[in-house]
Design a protein around this nucleic acid. Structure first.
Lengths: 139, 139
DNA sequence: ATGGACCCGGTACCCGGGTACCGGGTCAAC
DNA sequence: GTTGACCCGGTACCCGGGTACCGGGTCCAT
């Protein structure tokens, strides 16, 4: 497949493909005699994965790790496992944080129903909770 | 409190305070006679909220909405409720996505234990799932 | 053999979210 | 009354993640 076909199928800009290649997220595809990129069909799927992972808050650097991890053969498994577990733990933290946020929002909605003025603000109450202690450092 | 005190307590750069003010995330604080900002103590808590919300993947624009929503008196409740519900739905989607990701990761770890070569790749399998259909548009 | 659609690499630009630097004013202690 | 720590506004810069534009080559249908 040529660049524009992949881009079209993956719902992504052709420039983005080249950007990902430069970044090392996508391997350099083979080239035709005249230098045109010739992508394997699987690339479309990889791009779908990338987009979804981004929507879930992974950075391109993390996604690169995930891809390496997925692709790195059986011998890479030990580091892969560690990486995967670290990511899983981070996901658990994020999920917990989102859930708490969600709960605050719904309780805000609930107070909305009550007589105005005994409305309290759960969102701002959520302030008092300790920060999730993000192991991956400041963003 | 003066700028640097707030910044210190909130664990944030003094410049960031001014940046947030410019963006409209923080209200302009009263000024001393000589023009120094004099923040109310509550600002530290607000900053904590902002940081936590960011870690959970909210943009500053969304956080601004959340803050307005939290602060907007009882009379703003109807729009507030709609906003809160939309955010809650988005949170549900994100949580579901993260959970799926997490499941894929753990199952990858599980296949790691198996005899190499009947290792399959759940991460890349996750590709086939439909995208979460993000109602909030492309980021 | 020519026009339009595609591709190439390179560079420049955009947005979000900050951070740094500058020249100058303020304020408190000494 | 001077020194050092802080503040002011303004502007410039940085990073991540793209996107656009440029000048030139390729390809193929007519």
């Amino acid at each position: 497949m040529r660049t524009s076909e992949v881009a079209l199928k993956a719902g992504v800009n052709t420039q983005t493909l080249r950007y990902y290649e430069r970044r090392g997220l996508l391997p350099q595809p083979p080239r035709s005699g005249s230098g045109y990129r010739e992508y394997p069909a699987a690339t479309v799927g990889v791009l779908g994965f990338v987009k979804r992972a981004q929507e879930l808050g992974f950075t391109l650097a993390e996604i690169e790790e995930l891809l390496d991890l997925a692709e790195g053969g059986p011998e890479a498994c030990d580091q892969a496992r560690a990486l995967a577990q670290a990511h899983a733990a981070e996901l658990d933290r994020k999920i917990a944080g989102l859930r708490q946020m969600r709960a605050s929002l719904t309780s805000l909605v609930a107070t909305c129903d009550r007589p105005r003025a005994d409305r309290s603000c759960p969102l701002l109450q959520a302030l008092e909770e300790p920060a999730p202690a993000d192991g991956a450092g400041r963003r």
